[in-house]
């Protein structure tokens, strides 16, 4: 995409560091993330891959404004971020739905907060439920829905707000392979319709390559930071199941894995300790 580098980024994390109070060591600190600069252009789909526990969610929380970094700044369309990132929608790794609300009531929660009247919000909510393939489940409570359906509700709940920037934290990692590929394709279709900027966290390299314009690999913790960026020039629209068979896909996979391998092994060794 020409010109992307010169345009104002939709989201820019600059020199971010995050120190947490260390566990089992009162007064000490644990540096989860340091020296991390990540920019995402308008309309760009960027995946962040890294070993489990390295600090991916931490970076996303910084981007959302939920977590203030110890050092560094966040800019949203060129403006410094203070407080919650109002331009962003966030899809959490864990279940974040309100269990006491029906699927539809969950989907319309954002418009309701914004003061939209009930009838209008319901109409919009039904529309979004249909778009994520959940027509007919408006009155179901979350505990009656399957894991994949709950993810769809969460997706509709986020997209109904029409955010300019989408933050997703391993949204499909808890799903079975088939459901997961279905949802990945649906996500791409929705994204293709009105290209928003996406920061997509995953620990699955194949998922990252299949979805993204760019993949950023992170080092293992502590002190996680980007160790490589890879442009994914695969044709769009894509089918995540079929794209894996392209020779170019395997080449990219091998290339990124080469960079990531040592970090994953490091992360694995730390996890075992």
């Amino acid at each position: 995409m020409p010109g992307i580098e010169t345009a104002v980024p939709a989201l820019a994390l600059r020199d971010i560091a995050c120190h947490f109070p260390a566990r089992g060591n009162p007064g000490g600190t644990y540096t989860a993330v340091r020296d991390s600069t990540i920019t995402i252009a308008p309309g760009e789909f960027v995946s962040i891959v890294g070993p489990t526990g390295c600090g991916k969610s931490t970076l996303l929380n910084v981007a959302s404004g939920l977590l203030k970094p110890s050092q560094g700044t966040v800019e949203v369309f060129g403006k410094p971020l203070t407080g919650i990132n109002r331009q962003a929608g966030y899809m959490f790794q864990a279940d974040a739905l309100m269990p006491w609300r029906t699927a539809l009531e969950n989907v319309v929660v954002g418009p309701e907060f914004a003061g939209m009247n009930r009838a209008e919000a319901d109409r919009l909510g039904r529309d979004w439920m249909a778009r994520v393939g959940l027509a007919g489940f408006e009155k179901a409570y979350p505990h009656h829905l399957s894991g994949g359906m709950r993810k769809r509700v969460a997706l509709a709940q986020m997209l109904i707000m029409d955010p300019k920037v989408i933050l997703m934290d391993e949204p499909f990692s808890a799903l079975d392979v088939q459901t997961r590929q279905l949802m990945e394709n649906e996500l791409l279709e929705l994204w293709q319709a009105d290209r928003k900027s996406v920061m997509f966290i995953t620990h699955d390299l194949e998922e990252a390559i299949a979805l993204s314009d760019r993949v950023i690999a992170l080092a293992a913790g502590p002190g996680t930071h980007p160790i490589g960026e890879f442009k994914i020039d695969l044709p769009r629209p894509r089918d995540v199941a079929e794209i894996r068979h392209l020779g170019e896909f395997s080449r990219l996979h091998a290339q990124i894995w080469e960079a990531l391998k040592d970090e994953v092994l490091k992360g694995y060794a730390q996890g075992k300790r």
Binding site: N85, Y90, D95, G110, F113, M158
Partner: peptide, 12 residues
């Protein structure tokens, strides 16, 4: 998580 989600959706 539910709390953070509601805040991201704009809850006062």
């Amino acid at each position: 998580v539910t709390l953070a989600n509601a805040r991201m959706l704009g809850a006062s």
